Simulated assay, not measured.
Amino acid sequence: MIRRTLSALAIAASLVPFSPAIGTAHAEAAPQHTQVPGYYRMALGNLEITALYDGYVDLDAKLLLGASKAEVQRLLASKFLAGDKVQTAVNAYLINAGGKLILVDAGAAKAFGPTLGFIGEQLRAAGYSPDKVDVVLLTHLHADHVAGVLDAAGQPLFPNAEIRVAQTEADFWLSEANAAKAPDGFKPFFEIARKSVAPYQAAGKFKPFTGEVDLGGIKAVASNGHTPGHTSYLVESAGQRLLILGDAVHSHAVQFARPEVAIEFDSDKKAAIAARKKLFAWAAKDKLLISGMHLPFPGVGHVRAEGKGFAWVPVEYSPLPGSK
């Protein structure tokens, strides 16, 4: 009897047209058209590091020099990247060292259009206020690293922070004589650098350094070539190390496999290539964590020696120790 009843119900159900509206009173869900906030938190020994996503630029593959177009396209295709332009992240890294906040690079503001300039927004989403940042360490003074020290009104976004950069870098980009003799296409880079740091200079908060600088576990590592005073930073805590490369690499698909490939923006291409090879070899040998301002966000991972070049091994998502 039970079997006959279930069979009858099954037959009846098959005769009722299916309608997704039956039994629902809510409206159809609309697409949100937004992404999650651009920050990723990780622990490094006793430090907490937050990767911040400033946005992206479309990098033209023709800017990569030292390999044929066919080779560049082959390497891009191996990472499922197609087309002449590749979406390229702009990252920064916030280090919480016992409550002292150190930001490595500040993004581009709107110097390169609307797809960039979100460091302040991402910082707040990550739970920090820009006025709590104590130090902004700059890898160099290109606009996509320094312009973000100002807000939309041209005022300091980090009013209580000192700005630190290599003296060689400051001497080059803040020189009016260098700006005057630069090609017309490069003059705006000098102007943006001067304009960005000017309010901090006026407040006595622009403090270039010479040689090594040690900020409580953060050491400057000279890696000039991309710019005259380009600097990477080694962060160390409780036996763990992170090497922040800066702009030692722009295209993960091409420059790990072929580190001898330069980019048009390198001021000294030979020195930039030498610096990249040295940093990659060091990171691979010592199994350092690395991060880069133009690696796919969050831009943190390892370098593995592979053939005559290297391979990029991004970190996997992981909750913070002790988080629930």
Results as ranks from 00 to 15, higher is better:
R4P: 10
T5H: 04
S7A: 09
L9H: 02
A10V: 05
A13R: 12
S14K: 00
S19K: 08
A21K: 11
G23S: 06
T24A: 06
H26R: 04
A27I: 05
E28C: 02
H33A: 04
Q35M: 02
V36I: 05
V36K: 05
P37M: 08
G38C: 09
Y40W: 03
Y40C: 05
A43D: 03
A43M: 07
I49F: 05
T50M: 12
T50E: 12
A51I: 09
D54H: 01
D58T: 11
L59P: 08
K69A: 15
V72E: 07
Q73D: 15
L76Q: 14
A77V: 11
S78Q: 15
K79D: 08
F80N: 14
F80L: 11
L81F: 05
L81H: 10
A82N: 15
V86L: 11
T88D: 06
V90Q: 13
N96I: 01
N96H: 04
A97N: 14
G98Q: 11
G99C: 12
L101T: 04
I102E: 10
V104K: 00
A108L: 11
G113Y: 02
T115V: 00
L116C: 10
F118T: 12
G120T: 14
L123R: 09
R124N: 06
R124K: 14
A126F: 11
S129G: 08
V135S: 02
V135H: 01
L137R: 01
A143S: 09
A147H: 01
D151P: 01
Q155D: 12
P156Y: 05
L157G: 05
N160K: 08
V165K: 01
T168A: 14
T168W: 01
A170K: 00
A170C: 09
A170M: 05
N178M: 13
N178C: 12
N178Y: 13
A182Q: 12
D184A: 15
K195P: 00
K195Q: 11
Y200C: 03
Q201Y: 00
A202T: 06
A202N: 07
A202E: 10
A203V: 06
G204V: 04
F206Y: 08
K207R: 15
P208A: 01
P208Y: 02
F209W: 13
T210G: 13
E212K: 05
G217W: 10
G217E: 06
I218G: 10
I218K: 08
A220M: 05
A220Y: 04
V221P: 01
A222Y: 07
S223M: 09
S223G: 02
G225R: 15
H230K: 15
T231F: 12
S232C: 13
L234P: 00
V235D: 07
S237E: 09
A238K: 11
I244Q: 10
G246D: 13
A248W: 01
S251H: 06
S251D: 04
Q255P: 03
Q255E: 13
F256I: 12
A257S: 13
A262R: 14
D268F: 14
D268W: 14
D268M: 15
A271K: 15
A272N: 07
A274G: 07
K277G: 15
K277P: 02
L279D: 07
A283S: 13
A284Y: 04
D286G: 00
K287D: 10
I290T: 10
I290E: 07
H294Q: 14
P296Y: 01
V300H: 11
E306L: 10
E306W: 00
V313A: 09
P314H: 08
V315A: 14
E316C: 03
P321F: 05
K324H: 07
